[in-house]
Design a protein around this nucleic acid. Sequence first.
DNA 1: AACATCCGCAACCGCTTTCAG
DNA 2: CCTGAAAGCGGTTGCGGATGT
Length: 263
Amino acid sequence: MNVYEESFRYDTSKSEQEMDVRKGPWTEEEDSVLKAYVNIHGEGRWNSVARLSGLRRTGKSCRLRWLNYMRPEIKRGNISLEEQLLILQLHSRWGNRWSKIAQHLPGRTDNEIKNYWRTRVQKQAKQLQCDVNSKQFKDAMRYVWIPRLVERIRASSQPTSAQPSTESESVHVGPSLLPESSGTSSDSQLSSVTDLTDFYDPQSVSNYPNNVRNGSGFENVAAEAWGRSDDGWLGGGGGESSMETVWNEENIWFLQQQLRDEV
DNA sequence: AACATCCGCAACCGCTTTCAG
DNA sequence: CCTGAAAGCGGTTGCGGATGT
């Protein structure tokens, strides 16, 4: 029996409640025990994992730790432009269905996306002084932020031919073509956030629907809030992206089809 | 330097859904 | 079908580091 198996002694005599369950941050030792156990026995049956591994944790806690932190494919750190775009668009489609959204962002967990949304997106809504679920905010996303993000992605993938799109508001990026390259290295993939002001181009407002363009001037409000922001949410980093995938028209067309097919 | 405040994120909680017996 | 256990999910909390005063 090796050192790991030694720690997996079966103990059926105590229930979770009786076992003085540990809470709070996981230690390195607990992580290694969990990792070793899952490597041997595989994922699933988390209550058994908790019981048999010797960890004084609940099954829920073990599952969460593994899924959100210890899985080998987990990506951590900055959310790339493409991922930001996907989050925005998928959220507009599905709402707070974090796990569903996460399925389309390989290596990202629902928890991470949820945290991202709460810390970044809701912050923007707050600066716009509107609710994150309000039509106002959704319009800002749809007609200002998403198109600009799409343009940014295009620009960074096609630096020599990047032109402001006149169709950007109609672009819907599907989940299935998420660039694998964005996850090849947790260090190299980057959100490359910059000042949000460079994300807003007043000229492109003319491309938005009249009700947005002429309504309450909301795009200006949105842009203003964007400009006020000091954390660079959704900023593009001026072409410093390490994105390797070509975000071309063909891909975007394909993504549109993917999304339509999913409805 | 010390304290206060803000922010991001890991982890927990409680509810819902799924599944096996 | 019914029921209980397990798994999954979304909301919330609280800690620790960063930043501001």
